[in-house]
Nucleic acid binder design. Structure first.
Lengths: 337, 337
DNA sequence: ACTTGGCACTCGGGAACACAGAGTGCCAGG
DNA sequence: CCTGGCACTCTGTGTTCCCGAGTGCCAAGT
């Protein structure tokens, strides 16, 4: 059914279409790639490929265009990830090395990826689920407020202002701080709820209201946003591609954290590259886009995901190469800190 | 030269053009607004207005369109800021009230403003220049690293990882933390450099290298980004407006922090609304956009700016009303924390 | 002096039309 | 199973034409 030559034809169609953005016909195919056969033969193959659903023609007597299914086959079997040039690698390295904190790492990564691929880059903040508590700090702000700061070993800092009903007593705060740190130091975030469950009971009665208030904020901050934050960059690159319809939808999707979460989240294998093409996409507004996702993180533990979103008609080998490379370098940077 | 009726005509042109997005002719003007004169008279007035440069016609024998100068006159003398409905006010209040920290305030503000105006909202992080140090924390991360955290009274948190050459000694760190806090507590950020200038000299010799390292990071973090951060939201709203040319430019400008800084920054009077229209704009790519900016901040001190960017053809009274209202509510929220 | 109705003029945008070119499907021959 | 040839079918483009909205100007009216 799909012998080698037909696959070669499909590959040629994808490559030509990606680079020219015009439906590709049998004749130009025969010219530009030396497939060793005549246009007529290619036409026959194309008829078969179309029957199988790998390509389609926008209208009768126009060239062929790959379908989502065609791209899928291309990505799965016909292309190999293109490694970056060493110049690009150096650029990545130096650019990421200058980061001063976790925010900066994420910011630099997303910009780098957008610039590298000339598409929209999406980066998820490292999840805190696997992190451990490094330090808890309580800072009095005023009589009735104090700031609660949680620092993790991944360099992430969560802060919250806490309203304290009964006024802040320095000594109690200091004591509670010590207790909290003793209790939580080096404790995995997932275990924090268990660890603090009976904490109020172990305190003198007069400290309990304060402790309860702070703990509720602590717990809330853990569930609230442990890995919800996602940033993107490179929206300008969408304007270049001719998204006749749907550019608005795409931009809306990008600003919707929930959609982005699902987009990055629904990938099974974190260690490999995941590609979701066009209609494979869960979200309606993004059916004319593809997304390439990779997990990143220090060592074996994957912390989060990053990826690139672009038109279905994208250069998959190059994009995949860039995403994979950036994911590796970010992992490296994070492992070092 | 520009008597009352001509101004009325200009106002009518602006209003009609904003709502219909089509060049407006003398006849439809006479119909839709009861100016009490005939189309012919309006034509004469329009000829004068065109001569003065307030309006222009895209081509001969088309209706008139306001020029930047025309919008300017409209904004300065013909329009009054339209207050929000009480429903909208309530919505703002409840939406902003839920913010948990400064990041959240900024995030909510920018989204709110984008949704309210259906345009691109831009919010600058509160500047730290007028803030005071609330607390300095040093947290050992590993043998050779520690995290330096600076908390200000405006609720902002700066964090940095510091590489320590000689290894971290708990006692020294604790001592230095105490010294730093004693020295800097409630100290305006602007004065921090002075305050710490002779600090190493006042320490025992063996503490000096550590102190020097930390101080250099501290100072660097102050100059680096004290009010550089700007976020935006609502890019999708640009897609609706027909930016035939330049949408890419606009998106690029929005992702360029420097451009945004200049855009928000070059306003003299912080207490009032600033409107910059089309070509009054400093940046080339934004010459077909207008921006409405307001300062915000607690009390008399303006902390930073926020605004809305949209096509020159925008509903200025409504937009200005929204920006002013949001600026006030944000100021209120920040003053309360 | 200003306003008004009338009138000729201008141009942009849409409809109708023809045409070239690219691409296809199919068929018969190698 | 490949190939060259051939008739057919489209889309996109360029041309022409015409309608209508809108203008500018002028002469008459208040």
């Amino acid at each position: 059914m799909v012998d080698d030559r037909k696959l070669a034809v499909l590959r040629a169609i994808v490559e030509d279409y990606v680079s020219t953005n015009e439906p590709v016909g049998s004749k130009s195919l025969a010219e530009r790639h030396n497939l060793g056969v005549s246009p007529a033969t290619i036409r026959n193959d194309m008829a078969v490929l179309e029957e199988q659903g790998y390509i389609a023609q926008p209208h009768t007597s126009a060239g062929r265009v790959p379908t989502d299914k065609g791209y899928r086959l291309f990505v799965d079997r016909l292309s190999q990830v293109k490694p970056l040039s060493s110049a690009e690698k150096r650029a990545i390295e130096t650019f990421l090395a200058g980061a001063v904190d976790i925010d900066d790492v994420v910011m630099r990564t997303v910009r780098l990826l957008a610039q590298l691929t000339r598409q929209v880059a999406v980066v998820q903040y490292p999840t805190m689920t696997h992190s451990k508590v490094r330090h808890v700090e309580l800072v009095p702000l005023s009589e009735r407020r104090l700031m609660f700061v949680l620092i993790t070993n991944t360099g992430r800092v969560e802060q919250r202002v806490v309203e304290v009903p009964d006024g802040v007593d320095e000594n109690r705060v200091a004591h509670l701080r010590a207790v909290l740190n003793a209790c939580l130091d080096d404790c995995g975030l997932a275990k924090v709820p268990d660890m603090v469950a009976d904490l109020p009971e172990r305190l003198p009665a007069e400290d309990r209201p304060l402790a309860a208030t702070i703990l509720s904020v602590l717990l809330e901050s853990l569930v609230d946003r442990h890995d919800e934050k996602i940033v993107f960059a490179g929206a300008a690159n969408l304007a270049g591609a001719d998204f006749a319809v749907g550019l608005r939808d795409v931009l809306e999707a990008l600003e919707e954290q929930v959609v982005l979460m699902r987009l990055l989240g629904e990938t099974s294998d974190l260690s490999a590259l995941t590609v979701r093409i066009g209609s494979e996409n869960p979200y309606t507004g993004l059916q004319c886009t593809s997304i390439v996702v990779a997990g990143y993180g220090s060592g074996d533990k994957q912390l989060a995901r990053l990826g690139v979103l672009g038109p279905t008609r994208m250069d998959y080998p190059v994009t995949m190469g860039a995403v994979r490379a950036v994911a590796r370098y970010v992992s490296q940077i994070l492992a070092a800190s």
